[in-house]
């Protein structure tokens, strides 16, 4: 019985340690404001990358609409707190709900389209959202919204990330997640197995959209200022790079991708062009040499560590005997 729960207990411990280290770093003043911002961004990027991976990697669709869903979430959340003066948890619910509804509206008609057409259609959706937001005076037009309460702190980011990942993991490990995988692998055969492919395509799309909406709410309530132009398709491309680096269809890979690339861009902040050149090269190299993503679709599990541990142990042993 204990053995069965061992990995879960270990995971909880590891998370608790991670949480405490960062929290101590923040409250103890060990981390500069710059790095705190980047750690928060990392969290937001993990949510974005893993939710895009649910659509692009696990269900095999190709969406480029993530910036749009994030914008919907960010502005809805900001309206709830800044304009209506309601509490932050309501902003999260409203932001996710609005993004999910946007997901249904966009997904229902466009998911019938083949992969590359879907990509352009969702990209178009994102642009429409941006242009429409720029034209609504209620949300500040092109200059966006200001004075959004800065309530987001490390515990909120941490819990959001953990819950999002848990939600996606549970979904993928369920019969519904398997149906999504079946759609990716062979949609005709999936239909013949009784899988309603439209339902599952839209479902994965909507879950992905809702989580992008969550990322948007967090983003808005961290920076306190949001402008429509921040949510252009360049943002979607950033997330796409994280997914591709981490591997299509690997949840842990998305976490790694988001962490790696957020760190890389933190270091390259001074020369943003170079950062984009790096992203571009990563996209090309991964597509040409590793179409499943640089780290492939493998998950990092306890067994991975055991294996690495084993290799390390063997290497050390050999050194000693030599």
């Amino acid at each position: 019985m204990l053995k069965k729960y061992f990995p879960s207990i270990l995971a909880c411990l590891a998370l608790a340690v991670l949480f405490t280290i960062v929290q101590v770093g923040i409250s103890g003043g060990l981390l500069s404001g710059y790095w705190i911002t980047n750690i928060y961004l990392m969290g937001i990027n993990i949510i974005l990358a893993s939710s895009l991976n649910l659509i692009n990697g696990f269900t095999g669709e190709f969406s480029l609409g993530h910036a749009g869903f994030m914008a919907v979430g960010a502005f809805t959340g900001a309206i709830v707190t800044a304009n209506l003066g309601l509490p932050f948890p309501l902003a999260i619910i409203a932001g996710m709900l609005a993004a999910a509804i946007a997901g249904v509206i966009v997904g229902l008609p466009t998911l019938r389209l083949r992969g590359d057409y879907l990509a352009i259609a969702t990209l178009g959706f994102g642009e429409i959202v941006r242009v429409v937001l720029m034209n609504i005076d209620y949300v500040g037009g092109a200059s966006g919204m200001m004075g959004i309460p800065e309530v987001v702190n490390w515990p909120i980011i941490f819990i959001s990330v953990v819950l999002s990942l848990l939600l996606i993991r549970n979904f993928i490990g369920s019969s519904h997640g398997r149906a999504c995988l079946a759609v990716r692998e062979n949609d005709l055969a999936a239909q013949m197995m009784g899988v309603n492919i439209t339902y599952y395509k839209v479902l994965a799309f909507v879950i992905g959209a809702a989580l992008a909406g969550l990322a948007g709410v967090l983003y808005a309530h961290y920076y306190s200022i949001i402008q429509p132009k921040e949510f252009s398709f360049m943002l979607t491309f950033d997330v796409l790079v994280m997914v591709m680096v981490g591997g299509l269809g690997s949840l842990t890979g998305s976490v790694v991708g988001a962490v790696l690339l957020t760190t890389a861009s933190a270091f390259l902040q001074a020369i943003p062009e170079l950062r984009m050149v790096l992203y571009a090269l990563l996209l090309i190299v991964s597509a040409v040499f590793r179409p499943q993503g640089l780290l492939g679709e493998k998950e990092i599990t306890l067994r991975t560590f055991e294996r690495w541990g084993g290799v390390l142990y063997a290497a050390l042993n050999r050194k000693q005997t030599e």
Binding site: F237, M244, A280, L283, I284, A287
Partner: peptide, 10 residues
């Protein structure tokens, strides 16, 4: 398509 996006950014 991913590669094409990469070339574009590049």
């Amino acid at each position: 398509l991913t590669s094409a996006i990469g070339v574009s950014l590049f």
